[in-house]
Amino acid sequence: MTVMTMTDAITAALAEEMRRDPRVLTFGEGVATTQAALLAEFGPGRVRNTPLAEGIIAGTAAGAAASGLRPVIDLLFAPFLTYAMDEIVNSAGKLRFLSGGQFSFPMVVLAHTGAGWGVGGQHNHNIEAWFAHAPGLKVVMPATAEDAHGLMLSAIRDDNPVLFFTDTALVFAPGEVTGAPVPLGRAAVRRQGADVSLIAYAKTVHTCLEAAVQLAEAGIEAEVIDLRTIKPLDEAAILTSVRKTGRAIVVHEASRICGLGAEVAAIVAEKAFDALQAPVLRLTGPDAPTSGSFTLEAAFAPQVEDVVAAARATLAGTPRKGRASLPA
């Protein structure tokens, strides 16, 4: 077991896969510059800088993936993926189906997002649900260095395009890494509890864990589910938890409308309605761009006090709408 940051864990996983599989290569804007150790070990053929042009980076990855390589590309920040939507959504996501299965697209697309660096709405936008809505794609967003490492191993080995989002608030946080792969599509129970299920991913997992400590002091046992993979979603883990607790609060930084919380709430309503003792609640970012102001940026994501207030209210039978930390 080693302690490392999420960023280093991802690089370590990439290096392991590049050693194991000569088909794996990595490229993107500044990849060969920032990943000097990878460049030294694997050479300029497999570790490449590119022009600053996200569309052709993603398109090159899709073409290479369909032709026998397994590219890992770094598009830097999630909003930059809008320049690569055609290649990711229309090509990598659809041409397997449209060709009758003639091609597959084993590729990984890396991007940072989320509050943490004060970079504003054109560098920070949690668009992970956009890709969950597109067929043919998988989406992961880890909360720990261990999961970042393990999910990266699995993402590179997967034969489908995987969007790999990293939360800027977490990328430099150190964590223990055992080295084991983490399968795609499998959630983790971060804390056991019988009273309410807090369902989250990325930074809000930690928000929920802090809230759970405070709730425990008030005699409320919260269960914290870390989804880890956004698509395919681990429905069984969600339903098992909600059937146990009878109450669910979905907590994510991405905005509310058509966000992942809506999907989780719908799954619970469709498949565990009989177990529910209260309406499912969503605590999310607002329908607004993120700000470059640290204060506004930090306030965008659901806070510990929001989770505590929502959990207490739902257990008291007075579930409230909205977030306690934000003005109505």
Partner: peptide
């Protein structure tokens, strides 16, 4: 978007310019 891999006709895209984005990867491989 008719592809016929057995003939070497690959990754046909109907998005105008889509083929231009994919061909670099095919050639790189």
């Amino acid at each position: 978007h008719i592809s016929a891999r057995e003939l070497g006709v690959v990754l046909t895209s109907t998005i105008v310019g889509g083929e231009l984005a994919l061909v670099t990867g095919v050639a790189l491989a």
